[in-house]
Amino acid sequence: MKALRLSLLIIAAIAIGIIYLAWGKPSGLILTQVRIPRLLLTLLTGMVLGGVGSVYQLMLSNPLAEPYILGISSGSAFGSILMGVLGLSLLMPIGGFAGAMVTMFLVWGLAGRGGGFDRSRLLIGGVITGMFFAAGISLLMYLFLKDTVVILGTLMGNLGRIFTIGEYRVFLGLAALSLALLFWLYSQSSTLDIMSGSDLYAGSVGIKVSSLRKRVFVLSSILIGITVAYAGIIGFVGLIVPHVARFYVGPSQKKVYPLSLFIGAFFLLLCDFIAQNITVLELPVGVITSAIGCPFFMWLMLKKS
């Protein structure tokens, strides 16, 4: 039964991938130069959101945690939008990444003060920093009404970025780095499982709780910074995908994490396909993720209870 379900899932994923690439019979040039880069960006973004979401929910012991909860996304979006409205649209990923790093150090400072770095300090530090940058985004939106399109593209997710050849090389490099970081997070699964109980207990079995939490926080911030810089903020995936995974494989992070990567990637691919093709107008992908994901999750909740 389990093997059947898994193989069905894999077949569905492959089918989505093929439809995504072949829809509308594109020419070979378009396939390799436009669709495959977009496919890679979408898969990477979905993986990061699903994976980091599951790690944060565990690390912060909070089922409502998601990749954007520690403020990194707001800081990153602020940096990205700032570049966009100043007319430097090429520098948007760099601005986004720089914004993520600035936010990270701010949250780090707030959470680490007084020998802390416990989960509530981290959470409060992240939320307050996020609110601060969200105010900055609102301000930019108000001051640069003409650039609403750029701003909304970042706030509601936009996977349709056109790469120049140079930009694409940078993106591939960052994608490789992201995969390595995702793998490192996987290797910490068991430790994170133990840490989700009390810090005291984790410490007693030899885990350096505070330093591991710092490391997870820093590396996941880099991951989130990269995805927001390229794709903007895409809601729902990071919050709900780990819960969906947990519904099927139980609470063990070793299983939840890889399944979250997988579901995140292909769910986002499906949503991006729908966003592009459901109407003549390309819809923001962030709208589709919630519009499809929420009813599905409601159904899942009803069924399981």
Partner: peptide, 17 residues
């Protein structure tokens, strides 16, 4: 009018033809 430079437009992936 998107404030992109000609150099960048020319090197956009798939736009060379």
């Amino acid at each position: 009018y998107s404030r992109d430079s000609i150099k960048n437009i020319v090197s956009r992936k798939g736009w060379q033809d």
